[in-house]
Amino acid sequence: MTTTAAATAGGRTGRAAQTTMAQALGRALRDAMAEDPAVHVLGEDVGTLGGVFRVTDGLAKEFGDDRCTDTPLAEAGILGAAVGMAMYGLRPVVEMQFDAFAYPAFEQLVSHVAKMRNRTGGAMPLPITVRIPYGGGIGGVEHHSDSSEAYYMATPGLHVVAPSTVEDAYGLLRASIASDDPVVFLEPKRLYWAKASWSPDAPSVVEPIGRAVVRRSGRSATLITYGPSVPVCLEAAEAATAEGWDLEVIDLRSLVPFDDETVAASVRRTGRAVVVHESSGFGGPGGEIAARVTERCFHHLEAPVLRVAGFDIPYPPPMQERHHLPGVDRVLDAVARLQWEAES
């Protein structure tokens, strides 16, 4: 499924303005709601307030409270109700207010959302999108900065998507809502206010979810990353040119499904790889990714696949988070450990 946003957006004129990721996500919700009356948004503070990150700003006004609903404050209730709504043919988009506040909904997610298609022999898929602002770097106090993607990745039956650019935020959210499978849509909250010159009116391709993209081509090594760590890796790749390294940066965009093809093709060319994410390293996404790369590219590898990740600790208090988050230096350190001496 590849549609163009322009084709679905009702002939608006293209004009690239400075747009934040939060605005692009809001636009994706709006366009999806305008196109399909089955799309309903529900969550805490999503109506009158427009969400604590203002992603749903204006939706209740435009579509009414029944389409964009301030629910009682109960995440299990929100997601459980979304399951029932989907069973009756609606296409709910649920907002969890913060990463750690999605945990009360975990049972609904794991026992029902992820399994319903399978349990019913394909008869009753659940087209639910669960939007979760996630990750750190915004100075939040505890429970406001978790990277919880590993839990979701480890649950068969859930797609797990994380955009890193304004354009992808729009395209991937449209694709997630259009998908008949449930999608956990992770929004890197420290990129909410990142701006790009982008207009949803210009023809922008809505990719099927599950395709990684090469954000920067390079020959020396591949940085494999997603979400909030993409800008960090791009910055590291720029800095690495001073050391003579020409780094390729892959933005996975989707952890499930995983784009083995794009990743393996790159690593076979470069022969070296580092996986970078904010989530804790132990039991984190990097382990799965490193294993897949090794299985597919073993004979092309000049060095073990390395990981740069958050420490294996509960997310630290805001004044300490800068020590925890993988930054440019840590990425460059890992690149330096890719056994370059074998080259000369």
Binding site: I138, G139, R190, V232, E235, G327, D329, R330, D333
Partner: peptide, 17 residues
């Protein structure tokens, strides 16, 4: 890292609100 004086991890804090 701290002893080597590596600036912790520019690029993160600035993007916050």
């Amino acid at each position: 890292e701290l002893e080597a004086g590596q600036g912790p991890h520019e690029g993160e804090a600035e993007e916050a609100r």
